[in-house]
Design a protein around this nucleic acid. Structure first.
Length: 620
DNA sequence: TCGGGATAGTAGCAAAGTCA
DNA sequence: TGACTTTGCTACTATCCCGA
């Protein structure tokens, strides 16, 4: 049975009246039994007759009442077993779940091939984790994820499923899940609001001539309101934080300090915000329906945070239906144009190209995208922490560097699943996890920017590791800021860190660029004299300097031989490289040898000439 | 899974200097 | 004068790895 038909079956169960499923005779029995239930069975529930009564009720079609009674009587497991056989699975789990017997019930139902329904309802009853574990063992992995996603227990479920024997990889689950939902989305209509939901529409004041917003009260509770344009609407969620609010290691107000730091430093740097105001920086992140890029991949959420006065405002523009893209961009551009620079994490490669691609499809209807400046923090983060962190994903950096710890965060790979589910149900509860995930992302971008600024500006109060200091110096070196690079390298060179000699090598290179040959040689010779590991490059650089700038071929030969000996000892796994490098060493040695011998012969010749001349004098 | 930006490494070239 | 070496630059390629 396909997931879609299972879901429809599930809905069908919910809608079916139990009497219609029972025979007319059974319906009459149920009427009688229910009368008894209401009148007297509750009182008897604690007695030994509860189970039998429940069985009778179940057979008579009074499933719901039967479970309620037997659950109170403590006979949940047995009742559920009977009910499962009686095709009353869905209701049984619902009630027994509320009665606290979720795990046992689900186990029974899983065996009765009613896994999906069991999980759906028990998940909603709060027993997601346990149920998922049971279902995973019962082989209902994919269904477990699908339904638990609806029940809001995604993270735990996935965790359980990954650990379950024979479970597919997370990515496989999500890929298959996405596929299922894409198919479902293509073939189903948006669910009409129930009478209860219709009632909730009044939460947002009715606007003349505007269509009603499904689940308006839920949107309202999530601080989201509709934005109408050209007969369509998108939802805009807005959350405000006081500027003094802390997010991880810093308060938002420290963004102003970060900008002041760049102003004061006078340094040219790709991450510099010198000359900009805080509200010109848009900390931006999107959520999309996939990773593959191209026009088939829609951006359904444009989120950003921005300092505005004494507040940080998170604003999220959400696409409630695929046909409202023009409205999405119209609403976004109205706000975004107030800023001049995007600050993103991998946004140069991912987010912004996606936005550009999708905007192209509606460019005739909406304003052009502004030509933003763009600070992409990914590449800087990688420069600083590539050697130190297992990965430079934002989540890892948050934990290791920013003191930001997320609780109950929705994994990014489930965002498309949730979105397709939303398109199906229009229920904002389904998408809330994605909005909160995005909100955290755009807030963490502020914290990350403050942190990186403080490191790069080498603030006295910032706790910079030696490794970070070296990478920062290397960055300034690459940017041509020799003074800042030199200062950083010196601190590392003077430390007892393993990278001390790497820093000395770099300092020598800087002196060499400045044509300060003697200083370069002094640094490299200090490196050679050190007790730590000396890269061969240091010997070779010293040799080049001695040969070409200082005219000391003998010293150059000595350093080249030292480098070659060390290189031979160290060895290498790459055969071709070994041969070519060995040949290069030998060639250099031969050339220097010839030079040394030549100069010795020349000296001898000069000396002999002098002696000849002396002899001549003496002869005179 | 894929696109793309950044980085590192390499190749090619011209210019300058040195040397036989 | 030509061969060789280094330097500095540009262009290209390979690799990494991040986003949902």
């Amino acid at each position: 049975m396909s997931l879609k038909s299972k879901l429809q079956r599930m809905k069908g169960h919910m809608a079916l009246d139990s009497e219609k499923r029972a025979s007319p005779a059974a319906a009459r029995a149920a009427e009688e039994a229910r009368g008894q239930t209401a009148a007297g069975l509750a009182a008897e529930a604690g007695g030994a007759g509860a189970f039998q009564t429940a069985e009778a009720l179940a057979k008579a079609g009074g499933v719901l009442e039967a479970v309620e009674v037997s659950a109170r009587a403590g006979g949940v497991l047995e009742t559920a077993e009977v009910l499962a056989k009686a095709d009353g699975a869905l209701e049984a789990v619902g009630v027994s779940g509320e009665a606290g017997g979720v795990l046992e019930t689900a186990e029974v139902l899983a065996k009765a091939d009613a896994a999906l329904e069991a999980f759906g309802v028990s998940g909603e009853a709060g027993g997601v984790l346990e149920t998922a574990e049971v279902l995973a063992k019962a082989g209902g992995v994919l269904e477990a994820v699908e339904v638990s996603a609806r029940a809001g227990g995604v993270l735990e479920t996935v965790d359980v499923l990954i650990k379950a024997p024979g479970a597919p990889k997370t990515s496989e689950v999500s890929a298959e899940t996405i596929g299922v939902f894409v198919a479902a989305e293509a073939s189903t209509e948006v669910t009409a609001p129930s009478p209860a939901d219709a009632e909730s529409l009044s939460a947002i004041p009715a606007q003349a001539g505007k269509p009603p917003i499904p689940f308006a009260d839920k949107w309202s509770r999530m601080q989201a309101f509709p934005y109408f344009w050209e007969d369509e609407h998108v939802m805009i969620r807005e959350v405000r934080y006081p500027i003094g609010q802390r997010h991880g290691a810093y308060t938002f107000s420290q963004l102003n300090e970060a900008i002041a730091i760049w102003e004061a430093s006078g340094r040219e740097h790709p991450l510099s915000a010198a000359g900009k105001k805080a509200d010109e920086l848009l900390f931006f992140d999107t959520e999309t329906t996939g990773l593959s890029g191209g026009a088939g991949n829609a951006v359904f959420l444009l989120g950003y945070s921005r300092l505005e006065g004494e507040e940080v405002i998170v604003r999220q523009h959400f696409l409630p239906a695929p046909y409202a893209e023009a409205t999405l961009y119209q609403s976004f551009l109205e706000q975004a144009q107030k800023s001049s620079h995007l600050v993103t994490f991998n946004g140069k490669s991912f987010d912004w190209p996606q936005v550009r691609t999708r905007h192209t499809l509606v460019r005739d209807q909406v304003p052009a995208l502004p030509t933003f400046g763009h600070l992409d923090l990914l590449h800087g983060a990688r420069r600083l922490w590539k050697a130190e962190l297992e990965s430079c994903r934002l989540g890892i950096i948050e934990q290791e560097k920013l003191d930001v710890f997320r609780e109950d965060d929705l994994p990014g790979f489930l965002a498309p699943v949730r979105y397709f589910d939303f398109l199906h149900s229009q229920d904002p509860d389904v998408i809330e996890g994605v909005l909160r995930h995005n909100e955290k992302d755009v807030l963490s971008l502020i914290t990350l920017y403050i942190h990186m600024t403080r490191l790069l500006a080498d603030q006295p109060s910032s706790d910079v590791s030696v490794a970070e200091r070296f990478e920062i110096a290397r960055w300034y070196d690459a940017l041509g800021d020799q003074e800042t690079a030199m200062a950083g390298y010196r601190l590392v060179a003077d430390s007892d860190h393993v990278w001390s000699n790497r820093a000395k090598l770099a300092i020598g290179h800087l002196y060499k660029k400045q044509k300060n040959w003697q200083q370069a040689l002094t640094v490299w010779e200090a490196c050679i004299a050190s007790s730590g590991y000396v890269p061969e490059e240091v010997y070779i650089e010293a040799a080049k300097l001695c040969e070409h700038q200082l005219g000391d071929a003998e010293k150059a030969l000595r350093y080249t031989r030292q480098a070659y000996e060390q290189w031979k000892k160290r060895g290498t796994l790459l055969r071709n490289r070994t041969q070519s490098e060995a040949a290069a060493y030998q060639k250099r040695i031969d050339r220097l040898q010839a030079k040394v011998q030549g100069s010795a012969a020349e000296q001898e010749s000069l000396l002999s000439g002098f002696l000849d001349w002396s002899d001549e004098r003496e002869e005179m």
